[in-house]
């Protein structure tokens, strides 16, 4: 099912924080059913670029097209309505709320509306959360456990489950395997493959090149707010690792003309 129009296209995205230019004109394309790895050193602009796509930051310049249509994303709700979901590095869960409440946070099932007051359908949210956890084989005994009582791996599972629960077209994962145990990392990568098989398009930010190598079809390397590499993930892992590191540290650059500008 090849689709010529990319699901996401970002053109010439620029973003500064005071004197710091985090993004200096970055282009990004994500195709349907593709897993894109986003790599770079600290402060290379990976997270900033993804926060622009998910509506957490408003870019200073640049355009975003979703399935060929120009999108105006000025807040997280806009991105969400376009089918873009982000799993944040720090989980972005409310620790005092339970699992079901976190999965449905911001889009609660409504059972009745009395004027401006909307009543939650708690039972439905609990049932659907249970079904979601079972489908993704996430091991959490009860959906009414508070998130603060879960382990790191369980929290990450809740965060990913939450992002994918509502048939997102694009799921962005910011360092999904950071701070996780080896076994939990395996689970998360399995989950990424499973989501791709189910037709999701995914962008994965990661420091762990092994993760990118294992799940990505293509990768983009950022350095100092510029794109320095955009190529398929292929070949032997050692060769891959060497090549990527060369881009990350600045020894290689496929778009060097833009840096001189």
């Amino acid at each position: 099912m090849a689709d010529a129009t990319p699901i996401v296209e970002m053109r010439n995205i620029k973003k500064s924080f005071g004197a710091v230019q985090a993004l200096r004109g970055v282009d990004l394309v994500l195709h349907h059913h593709e897993v894109l790895g986003l790599v770079g050193d600290n402060a290379a602009g990976k997270s900033t670029l993804m926060k622009v796509l998910s509506g957490a930051y408003i870019p200073d310049e640049g355009e975003i097209f979703i399935e060929g249509k120009k999108a105006h994303i000025t807040e997280p709700m806009d991105a969400r309505q376009l089918g873009i979901e982000m799993v944040y590095q720090d989980f972005a869960l409310a620790k005092d709320l339970d699992v079901a409440a976190n999965v449905f946070l911001g889009r609660e099932a409504v059972r009745a509306q009395l004027g401006p007051i909307r009543l939650m359908d708690k039972r439905r949210m609990e049932q659907e959360t249970r079904r979601l956890l079972d489908r993704l084989k996430i091991d959490i005994s009860s959906v009414s456990l508070k998130v603060e009582s879960l382990s790191g791996g369980q929290r990450q599972s809740v965060a990913i489950g939450r992002a994918t629960a509502f048939n997102a077209k694009v799921t962005i994962m910011d360092e999904p395997t950071a701070a996780l145990s080896v076994a939990a990392i395996g689970k998360v990568l399995d989950l990424v493959r499973e989501l791709k098989a189910q037709g999701c398009s995914i962008i994965v930010i990661s420091h762990r090149l092994e993760d990118i190598y294992q799940v990505s079809d293509r990768m983009i390397v950022l350095r100092h707010g510029h794109k320095v590499c955009d190529c398929p993930v292929a070949g032997d892992i050692h060769e891959f690792r060497e090549r990527v590191v060369a881009y990350i540290v600045g020894a290689r650059d496929d778009f060097s003309k833009q840096i001189i500008d």
Partner: peptide, 9 residues
């Protein structure tokens, strides 16, 4: 978690 709430829309 105010930030999480904001990000959840």
């Amino acid at each position: 978690n105010e930030e999480a709430a904001r990000l959840a829309g």
